[in-house]
Write a protein that binds this DNA or RNA. Structure first.
Length: 594
RNA sequence: GGAGCCGUGGUGUAGUCUGGUAAACAUGCCGGCCUGUCAAGCCGGAGAUCGCGGGUUCAAUUCCCGUCGGCUCCGCCA
């Protein structure tokens, strides 16, 4: 390599005027005037214009004429100011240009399949197949840089707080519960498999038993479930755990981390402590365990009033143990019948029986329900709903959990539709006191709401035996603008309680011994009280960067079908490889290819 | 596992509903001219069997069925 790059293209300014510099990068574009050729040269710092004059560049001007977009070149020259008319205010470096007197072409380039520039609207298929070109686009490179800064500042902050970064195995054992595992066959132990970790959960608890006291890891996690815009099969967590702490202390440290990241990486001030809501309150007020509190529109309960009205659907809901809850879509009284019908269809798609509605007018309510409510009841509704002229009240009747959930979704839908969220607004809050267990109707058994290692609230422990579904846990979720970005809990550190939980989850003593014997064993040798939390790093970065897809902040993401279009993974392997691993594929008839 | 949307020169789209000369526009690409452009300009040119397979029809980019790929959502994600 002849020419040695010594400057970033985008960093040159008129302060560099007169300097001899060597820049190197990719050709963004060319403007060929015959005897005068302009090239825009781009590297990760930005773009600078290089000018080649036929007279001055005689010895290599024929080379310059061959240069096309995305060629990789180096140019040596002097930084010269542009004349006033020639200044380009759109470029950071627009006040200067480089007058070239030496050129090296490192590599030509085919015409790229899409434009290497920001804001392209190209089939994602192509972007993923040519991911190396997609990442070359400045906005994508900047996202990678952004991600780097968040990782760096995370490490700085946690180090300062006394956390040690410790790596845990990627090849570990499959455990029941939770997501489907990615399995890795063992060559040395025929018929046995490793699993890729869904999270380093058990290892970090063992590190607490080991006396590490404060651990963290930027941990890659794997879950073999279907994908979403904000879900990839392999993803990264900021995972941490500490001993001798409390829920409140852990939450405070995390608030410090979030504040540090926003300040150092985005230059924005956010002010902990964050609001704390109990799960019950979050559900009652917002119909969600991850409420978006950037706008109000809180839910209200009209069950008692509904019980007294003549409308069968409402009456029946309440008498059969359910509820009638509602929300007030402020100033939406102008919605047409069709718009309300569309909302009805929407809530039906979420499982509602129907949608009750009342438009608040100057002299009462416009509603098909009018005949079922006497005026006293309507007045009560008006008060509970804080109904003013021009408002639209919406009601869902049914099972409490379902009604709340549907109203919660409806609330978010209306919030977006009505533009109630002001751009740039940031709302963090904690949700605590989750139920420890939930009933799985399909499997007809109890499952962990968080995970099986989550400690119950001390005061609820007696209920474990008598009323397990009403036991609350010492779990906490961090919610950012209606998205769960982190979750954690104080863990169980006693063998007997852990065994009790496993038993509630339907594991037999033999299962427990086989799958979790190592954990329970560790608890017998002085396990300290401990707890921790994990951030969904990709999701956090996505939100901080204002992106809609997690794929934008992952260098080499998978498609919705879990494929890598760049490498073609997953792919068949040679029969010999399978034989070595003592496995053979058994394809169902409908899954066979070719 | 289910639902919806999308697939037309390299790229982005139009055409498809209402079948009819095998396809239009922009940009990119190639060649020529051009010494102050930065979305350079002017002139010329090449480039698509309309994702793939089957069906209906005298005739299919267009209608039907299937399939593949991408995206979004539900289920799933302790």
């Amino acid at each position: 390599m002849g020419l040695q790059k010594n400057r970033g293209c985008g960093l040159l300014t008129k302060d560099n005027t007169g300097e001899r510099v060597t820049i190197a990068g990719w050709v963004q574009g060319r403007r060929d005037h015959g005897g005068l050729i302009f090239l825009d040269v781009r590297d990760r710092t930005g773009i600078v214009q290089v000018v080649f004059d036929q007279e001055k560049s005689k010895s290599f001007f024929d080379q310059v004429e061959k240069i096309r977009p995305e060629y990789v070149i180096a140019v040596e020259g002097s930084v010269i100011p542009r004349s006033r008319e020639a200044v380009n205010p759109k470029l950071k470096t627009g006040e200067i240009e480089i007058s070239a007197d030496a050129l090296e072409i490192f590599n030509p380039s085919l015409t790229p399949p899409f434009y290497i520039e920001d804001g392209i609207d190209t089939d994602e298929n192509l972007r993923l197949r040519y991911r190396y070109l997609d990442l070359r686009r400045p906005e994508m490179l900047e996202l990678m840089h952004f991600r780097h800064k968040i990782l760096l500042e995370t490490r700085k902050y946690l180090d300062k707080e006394g956390f040690w970064e410790i790596e845990t195995p990627m090849l570990t054992r499959s455990t029941p519960e939770g997501a489907r595992d990615y399995l890795v066959p063992s060559r040395i132990s025929p018929g046995s498999f490793f699993a890729l970790p869904q999270s380093p959960q058990l290892f970090k608890q063992l590190l607490m038993v080991s006396g590490v006291e404060k651990y963290f890891q930027i941990a890659r996690c794997f879950r073999d479930e279907d994908l979403r815009a904000d879900r990839q099969p392999e993803f990264t967590q900021i995972d941490l755990e500490l001993s001798f702490s409390t829920r409140e202390k852990i939450m405070a440290i995390m608030e410090g981390l979030v504040r540090h990241l926003f300040l150092q990486v985005c230059g924005e001030e956010i002010n902990p402590p964050f609001k704390v809501l109990s799960y019950q309150e979050a559900m009652d007020r917002f119909g969600s365990d991850r409420p978006d509190t950037r706008f109000a529109m809180e839910l209200f309960d009209v069950s008692e009033i509904a019980a007294k009205c003549q409308f069968r659907v409402f009456q029946n809901a309440v008498t059969s143990g359910g509820v009638v809850r509602g929300l007030n879509a402020k100033k939406c009284g102008h919605y047409s019948r069709k718009e309300i019908d569309d909302l009805t269809a929407l809530v039906k798609s979420w499982g509602a029986q129907g949608l009750g509605w009342m438009i608040v007018t100057g002299d009462g309510f416009k509603t098909p329900l009018a005949k079922f409510f006497d005026p006293v009841l309507l007045d009560q509704i008006r008060e509970i709903a804080d109904a003013r002229e021009g408002d639209l009240l919406l009601f869902i009747a049914g099972d409490k959990e379902k009604a709340l959930d549907i109203l919660g979704q409806l609330r978010v839908h209306l919030g977006q539709r009505e533009g109630l969220v002001s751009p740039g607004e940031k709302k963090f809050l904690w949700v605590i006191d989750f139920p420890l267990l939930a009933y799985d109707k399909e499997g007809k058994r109890l499952t962990s709401v968080h995970h099986p290692f989550t400690a119950p609230l001390e005061e609820d422990r007696p209920l474990l035996a008598s009323d397990p579904l009403n036991v609350r846990s010492q779990a906490y979720d961090l919610v950012y603008n209606g998205v769960e970005v982190a979750g954690g809990s104080i863990r169980i550190h006693r063998k007997d309680i852990q065994e009790e939980i496993f038993a509630l989850l339907g594991l037999t003593p033999a299962d427990i011994e086989e799958k979790f014997g190592f954990l329970l064993g560790a608890f017998q040798y002085g396990a300290p009280p401990h707890g921790g939390l994990a951030f969904g790093l990709d999701r956090l970065i996505m939100l901080m960067a204002g992106r809609k897809s997690i794929r934008d902040v992952i260098a080499f993401p998978k498609t919705a079908a879990g494929n890598c279009l760049l490498t073609g993974a997953p792919a068949p392997v040679f029969a010999g490889q399978l034989a070595e691993l003592h496995i053979s594929p058994v394809l169902r008839e409908d899954k066979k290819k070719g």
